[in-house]
Amino acid sequence: MSEPTGVIHDIGYQRYTGPRLGRRHVFGALYLHGLRTVFGLGRTAKAKIFPWLVVGIVTLVAAGITAVRSQIGEVVMTYAQFADSMSWLVIFFVAVAAPELVSRDLRSGVLPLYFSRPLPRDDYPLAKLLALVSAIWLLLGGPQLVMFLGAAFTTDKGMSGVWDELLDLLPGLLYAGLWAAVFASIGLLVASLTGKRAFAAGGIVAVFLMTTPIVGTLSILPSRTINELAFLASPSTLVGGVGTWALGDLLVPEGRGGGVPIGDFGPVYGVAAVLLVAACVALLLLRYRKVAAR
């Protein structure tokens, strides 16, 4: 006999027999959660203010550049230059986002809840790192896309003009990826050392800003080799150096000056950037090995 309908039963506890997803899905869930956290989605209104302020500023700058270019027909800033000139903003963005991603978890003690689940130990920091890299890349790449669209619609050379523009955009996006990788790996490593968000933010800003005077000092020493290697000392100038070497005139249009005078040491900058990111990731994983066992 069937139960009468329209009656609410306490169905009691139900065992779950459905599918349990594998590592890839779990990593994806953690990554997406991290990406949403960076932009304050699914959080309080207060957490949304800063990230969206930064997004607003970079988009506005890109829109302004596009407008000027379409009016006077002169390239104010290349795609790569845009990434360079936004670096200060990116530093502050990282200083807010990285502690939000990892410091708050350290402080609230939620990590045992992650590490007692079938989540491999290294997946937690890697998912967070990937989320931060993606966020910074979107932050720099989005406005570049705005600039591209503006240029593509106002070009007077037809499809070949659009194609040229696209060939300019792609290295620009790659360069934004380099910025994202370097800044995210350093920022997340610093933030993972403390559970206090204010300390973490201060530490990140310090790493990026305090190293700049070292570059300044080294670059006025009376030795050309030291001068040309000086830019290795700070993450921002290091990225600039790699850009100058790898992108050449895409970053610094001929006859416009600027760029980073690295002489013939371009490959050194490239290797240094790779080593820096690798070292930061290795230290980050090491750090979470220790944290997970607590």
Partner: peptide
């Protein structure tokens, strides 16, 4: 766990859902 382990600004529903997904639930 024995000690405090909950991020204060998330709701219980969000947190438990998120941790359920980390355990591999769709």
């Amino acid at each position: 766990p024995e000690h405090d382990a909950l991020p204060p600004d998330l709701s219980a529903a969000e947190l438990v859902t998120h941790l359920g997904r980390i355990s591999g639930l769709p």
